[in-house]
């Protein structure tokens, strides 16, 4: 009998291959965080080492220095077809988190992605969101249709039974595909440990602090932790009483910020 981690991985591989089989013209969104790096790892496995589609990094320009170094190193090492997605217009006009968080996330992430989508017309985007990260993400489907302007109709999602995923939409629409939806934060770390997946050092404790979730440097706060390696992170997660995204400011500006961001097309 295969192990629980093997089951999780096999389901993700199935979903990734299903997306590629249906659309061919797809891309993976890589934030360089632990989840999307684990997804990238599984995508490499699904395609026997050579990813046949582009990988998109949405670059707000406010990411940690280490994230850029990590991106450049592994996109070379893994032979990725990397697309850097930036909303240059908004950056030139001075958009930054000091103005307003919701507007900044929307302009530098969602709108940047829209620009890339207009150029490349991907039919599906692979994203590493997980149900246990946030209550709104827990409402997602594996194959989630989006309108041309990225709207998510969360009031009326299509039925999704077993592993028979919806795979046809109107011409101008696209799919968000979520191959990691069923993984937990703990599963991800156990998998990173087993597979020896390279991970940004920001996740490991230095001077009593570590990042549990990584976004822009400006909008991420580290949590108190002494977990300086993967084994210790796994141990910490088994007993922690702090939620994963507690350091992410866009989640909690108001109760429904995430819902609003996501209905506008945020990841």
């Amino acid at each position: 009998m295969i192990s629980y981690l093997d089951e999780l991985e096999s389901k993700s591989v199935y979903i990734i291959r299903e997306a590629y089989s249906r659309f061919r013209n797809i891309a993976l969104l890589w934030s360089i965080g632990k989840d999307s790096t684990a997804l990238l790892w599984i995508v490499r496995k699904a395609f026997f080492g050579k990813i046949p589609h582009p990988v998109v990094h949405i670059d707000t320009s406010f990411k940690f220095k280490e994230i850029y170094e990590f991106r450049n190193r592994y996109s070379r090492e893994w032979g990725l077809d990397l697309i850097i997605s930036r909303n240059e217009g908004a950056l030139q006009e001075g958009m930054c988190p000091d103005k307003a968080k919701l507007e900044c996330c929307n302009a530098l992430k969602t709108e940047a992605l829209k620009i890339t989508m207009q150029e490349r017309r991907f039919k599906a985007l692979l994203l590493a969101i997980r149900r246990d990260e946030h209550g709104i993400r827990a409402k997602e489907r594996y194959f989630s249709p989006r309108t041309i302007d990225f709207k998510w109709d969360y009031r009326n999602q299509p039925p999704e039974l077993w592993d028979l995923y919806k795979s046809n939409v109107e011409k101008e629409e696209h799919f968000r595909i979520h191959p990691m939806l069923h993984w937990t934060e703990l599963d991800i770390w156990k998998y990173i440990e087993r597979e020896k997946i390279p991970t940004a050092s920001l996740y490991f404790a230095k001077d009593g602090k570590r990042y549990r979730s990584i976004g822009c440097e400006t909008c991420c706060a580290p949590v108190d932790s002494s977990a300086a390696d993967i084994k210790k992170i796994i141990k910490e997660l088994k007993t922690t009483k702090v939620s994963e995204r507690s350091g992410r400011s866009q989640d909690k500006e108001s109760a429904y910020t995430m819902q609003k961001l996501r209905s506008l097309g945020y990841m």
Partner: peptide, 22 residues
């Protein structure tokens, strides 16, 4: 409210869509 996360769900005290929790 732990599972009813949508604004509409909380205001009307109903569950609209399925969710999963661990």
């Amino acid at each position: 409210f732990l599972t009813d996360q949508l604004e509409e769900e909380r205001e009307k005290n109903i569950t609209i869509d399925t969710t999963q929790i661990f």
